[in-house]
Design a protein around this nucleic acid. Structure first.
Lengths: 165, 165
DNA sequence: ACTTGAACCTATAGTTGCTACAGGGTTTAT
DNA sequence: ATAAACCCTGTAGCAACTATAGGTTCAAGT
């Protein structure tokens, strides 16, 4: 049996360590411990010495989480998605709602980022390469009037916060 | 003279308080104090009672900062831009370099966000509205193979970190 | 059995750019 | 004189990790 399990990759009574788990989901051990702390992954079985050991289920769950995070879903959204994926009999309406909402946020962010890009292009395009004194970039930054779009290309925040649930 | 200054908006010996300053640059007093802490704005003159008072120069500087932040420049980038705008005789090469670099980052982020949007659209579009069991969204999240783009649509980080300097 | 070195443990602080308190003091207008 | 509106400092919080310090355990080789 252990040959079979070796082929699968995880022996039943043994399991893999946190490093190997992290490698399989393309993240770091710290991230896994973080997910455990915030309750996205269950507390792992421990060896006598206190080290975490994981099985196939944990690998699948972590890959799901990392993939959803890759898609930009917030940790809270991932938590909801996980809850639902644990209940296969449920209607997937809510899953769809979360994904659709997220898509909308990504689209609105895209629009604002495009406006920002246009404004930056204009700014950079107008720099004649002289002295700071007459630098178009500095001027635009000093005077909002010089922007085409009336205020708010999304703003710095837009580039920071992930779209939530 | 105080009538004239009232017209300008800031009396010479008096100055405005932090609240008024913040209002003029469309931010909050806390933000101004934060900028002071990190050295983006100078320490203000204080009243006898210890309250900050500002003049026109501070208003201009803060507006510049907020505008640059609106453009998505990081605080560190803003610091450099400020240093340069303080030296009008310098060549604006470096200004241009910062802005161009920032533009490039915005553009690359846009691309990844577009890929993400496409993937999300596909995912949402394929949801047939049945049970979670057969939910296409859950499936895609469980299995990266189902993505069109080979891995890495930018990732969650992309939606969080602002583009730096 | 022993030793080495990689992997692991916990707890805590740092990242970015603010924002939000708590628990006071000051200014200004009536 | 008193109240409303403003301001002060210091600290903690947000998201989602990442990094570090200082120690323990595991697995493999000799």
């Amino acid at each position: 049996m252990s040959e079979h399990n070796a082929a699968i990759g995880i022996g039943i009574g043994i399991g893999i360590g946190i490093g190997e788990l992290a490698r399989r989901a393309d993240c770091k051990p710290e991230t896994v411990r973080y997910y455990e702390r915030v309750g996205l992954v269950d507390e792992a079985v421990r060896t006598e010495g206190g080290q975490r050991r994981y099985g196939e289920a944990a690998v699948r769950r972590l890959i799901f989480i990392r993939h959803a995070r890759d898609f930009g879903f917030s940790v809270e959204a991932v938590r909801e998605l996980l809850t639902m994926s644990d209940r296969p009999d449920m209607s997937c309406q809510e899953v769809d709602a979360i994904a659709t909402h997220h898509l909308e946020e990504v689209e609105s962010r895209l629009q604002r980022l495009e406006a920002l890009r246009d404004e930056l292009r204009r700014m950079v395009g107008q720099c004649a390469g002289g002295k700071v004194e007459s630098c178009r970039i500095i001027e635009v930054l000093s005077d909002h009037q010089l922007c085409i779009s009336e205020h708010d290309h999304g703003g710095a925040d837009d580039l920071k916060h992930g779209p939530h649930s």
